[in-house]
Structures are given as C-alpha cells and as structure tokens.
Design a protein around this nucleic acid. Structure first.
Lengths: 239, 239
DNA sequence: ACAAATCCTGCGGGTTCCCGCCATTCGAGG
DNA sequence: CCTCGAATGGCGGGAACCCGCAGGATTTGT
C-alpha cells in the first residue's frame, strides 16, 4: 500500500511519517508533498488511494486540494490532520466529501495512540472518523440556534466579500427583500445585537463579518476561496 | 544564563530546545511554557532575561504576553519565533517594543543555522534582529503608498469591530468628517476600488475589512485584542 | 517668514442599508 | 379542510454611509 502525506510543516511531517511507519506496516511507500498544489499533482500522478492532508497550507489549502482530488478519484481515502477546529474548515470539508467515501478529521493535539487508531480506521478500513473535539464543536455551535444553514452561510460569504444586497440577490437568484431577511437571521445568529441601551450603534454588516471571523465561523482561507469563486462568477456574468 | 521558551506546539518546542542547547552553551536552564498566560506567569516568577516567544497561541498570543512582560521588565530580551509574516503581528510587535530593548523576529521556516545565529545575536548580544523575510514584507507594503499610518490603522481597527463613524469619531476625539476622510484613504490603500465599469457596487466598509484580512494586515488575534480594548473603553465611557 | 502641503472640519445630497408591515406560497399536522 | 410556521418578497421610510466642495488650522520646506 502506498500513502501520500501533504503537510507543509517539516516537523509535523516527519512525526507523522514516524507514526505511519509504526501503525501501518502494510505501507510500502510514503510520498511527501509540501503544499496543496504539490499534493494535487502527486495524487494525480501517483494514483494514491490513501492520503493524510494538512488543512492550512499556502498556496492551496487542504480543503481545496481535497476537492480536486476527490473530483478526479472519489474513492480516495483522506484523513485531514489539522491544528485548528475552525468551523470554517469543518464546513468546507463536509461540503466536498463525496458520498460513500472514507475520510477522517483529527487534531494535531491528539495523542500518538489516537492518531494511530484513526490512521488505521480511515486509511485501511475505510471508515469515517471525526475527532471528538470536532464533534463537540459541531454540537456546541448547534446547541443554541447559532448554527447557520447552508444558504445562510452562502449569504455570509457574499456579505464578507463586500457584495451589496442587490448583487447578492442576483447571485443567489432571490429577491432583494429575501436577502435582507436572511441577513436579519444572520445577524441574530452571529450575535449582532440590536442597539441596546448600553452600547448601541454598530454597523451590523461589518460587525457580522467581524464576529464570524472571531468565532472561527469564517477564516482567511475560506474567504480567499470564496473570493476566487466570486471572481469566476463575475467573469462569466459579463455576457 | 536561564532562558524561557513560550511555545504551544510540542514539536516546535522540542526542536527549539535542541537548537538552544547547541547554540547557547551558556544556558544553564530552559523553562518551557505552553501558552501566553503561562509564559507571563513564568516570566514574572522566574525573572528571565531572555525569552523565545511563539506568536500564535491560545489563550493569550505572543504579542499580548510580550506586552505585559515588557511592562514589568523592559530590559527583557525577547525573540519572536513565528510561522507567519502577517503584517498584523509585525505591527503589533513594533508597537510594544520598549526603547533600547533587544528583540528579534525570525520565521520558523528559517534554517537551523540562521536560527542559531539569531538566538545568539538577540539573547546573548542584545542586538535587534529581524528576519529578511519580514523586512521584505515591510518594504513591499511600503513601496506603493499602501502602508497604513498608525492613525489609519487605529481607524481600521474600529471599523473592523463594527463601530459607526460617529463612535469612531468620539473614540478618537475627532470630527465625523475627519474620520470619513481617513476611511477614504483607508479604502484607497486597501485597494477598495471605486465602482469601475466592470464590476461596481461593493460595500466599501465590509470590503475594506475583507481585504485587510486577506492581505494579513489584520488577523484574528489582533481583532480579538482590539475587541477587548474596545470593551474596556466602552465600560469606562459609561460615566 | 512666506508659501505649499497636509490635516481637520462643516454642509449638502445621492445611495445603500435596516427593518416594520403585510401578502403569498407550501408542506406538516390537526 | 383548516391552521400554523417557515420561506419568500413588495412597499416605504428613517438612519447611516460615501463623498464633492470649500474654508480654516497646522506642519513643513526653503
């Protein structure tokens, strides 16, 4: 069995390779790519069926790399291995995972034993396995009604890029007023308060973005991919 | 000589300790703190005169920790050791470094030899040393007139937190129109274009924040400390 | 010391935003 | 069949925002 490691931090990569050698004796060859682009190329060239993928990398983060890899070979088993439990990554990953494909999400703070377990479960046995820490995040954000629906998230992205109501409406194919209603619930869920007697007067739009970023609902990577998507949409709108 | 290492990534910490042992034979004891809070406490208790500090940590990032440490002992020599060359960190660090105190800024991607060199220069010889990579960043952003003045940066922070023009004006002790002029130049410097024929219609305010984050002029950590400052100001305004 | 450049400020007006009020649609449950 | 709730939108108005114009203050260069 051959395995691909996509990880830009050298220390983490070598640690990971050590654990792999120990946990997966059936591995005959491990290849190491330093970023998302290299990872995609290596996956395309090497026909790997098992990949360990870091999330935060430049250029091309793990979510993007995984998307193109899965588009070409949906059966690939990918274990995401990340420092962060950002909701943005979580959402990004769950948006792109194909049906019936094995994947996992484990934090770098996980113990060596746990990592070995997850490696076997996902890459060998083809199971789906998500770190408890991540699951807790999902549930925590779900517990109040703070969880954003997919359509609300889409509007949030548009807002974050600086689109005006009118353009968002056009892009999402809805009326202006509907978008504004979405924004309303968005403000609510992000905790952008109505002006209370104490400290009123926020610019809700900016405040929403600000809070989305502070709470890790959005992060820089996702913002950048969203920008690219927007550029793409804009360019083909000019017709 | 005794040295304090503040670093939350275990692999990086142990690597660093190895390099320290090799480069600084005069070190008799190294203490390891896992985050900014622990770092502050350790510095307070241990009277260290030399510290190596990671920047991105939770809770309490390296900039904040360094600020309180320097407030108590301005002569402390601090070497910042970070993965990122965010302008936000750079600005944060240069805002808090006391006069005549030794510090340095080196990237984790630097070679082992370079790290050894910087360790000696800053912690032993008391020099100021900033990674070439970082210097380039500073110059690159300075080359057009894209570099933000301190007052513009302050307004950017307020904007990012969602304050309205009026409140920013009050907080900074200036007139409404002045703030709006600042915002004008801010938009210009951040590349928030006037509506061109191609794709007009951006919400400039949100767009400015969005670009500031994409270009690493702002990052989450700085946003969060700014929020705390704001809370503080708001609470003592209520009089 | 005089001029130029830069910063600060008031005024006015065209847009965009936020949101209350209300009508329509559609699926779930009584 | 009726009702209820959630999602969709039209209308309209008050507030905030963006910014051109223009006068005054402060700093800087020579």
């Amino acid at each position: 069995m051959r395995i691909l490691v996509v990880e830009d931090d050298h220390f983490h990569a070598s640690f990971l390779q050590g654990v792999i050698a120990e946990a997966l004796p059936e591995v005959t060859e491990t290849l190491h790519a330093q970023d998302g682009l290299q990872g995609e190329a290596a996956a395309r060239a090497g026909h790997f069926e098992a990949i360990v993928m870091d999330l935060q990398m430049v250029p091309r983060n793990g979510v993007e790399a995984a998307r193109t890899i899965w588009r070409e070979r949906p059966r690939t088993r990918i274990l995401f291995w990340s420092n962060y439990s950002d909701e943005a990554y979580l959402r990004g990953v769950s948006e792109i995972v194909p049906a019936n494909s094995a994947y996992g999400y484990v934090l770098k703070t996980a113990s060596r034993e746990r990592l070995k377990l997850v490696l076997r479960a996902v890459l060998i046995d083809g199971q789906v396995m998500v770190d408890r820490e991540i699951q807790r995040l999902r549930r925590r954000s779900a517990s109040p009604r703070h969880v954003l629906s997919d359509s609300e998230y889409a509007v949030l992205l548009d807002l974050a890029l600086g689109l005006q109501d009118r353009l968002i409406a056009e892009r999402r194919g809805m009326s202006l007023r509907t978008i504004q209603n979405r924004l309303l619930t968005l403000y609510e869920k992000l905790g952008v308060s109505d002006d209370e007697p104490g400290v009123p007067a926020f610019n809700k739009r900016v405040r929403a973005l600000s809070r989305a970023i502070s709470t890790r609902t959005l992060n820089v990577e996702m913002l950048e991919t969203a920008q690219r998507d927007l550029d793409h949409w804009l360019s083909e709108r000019r017709d």
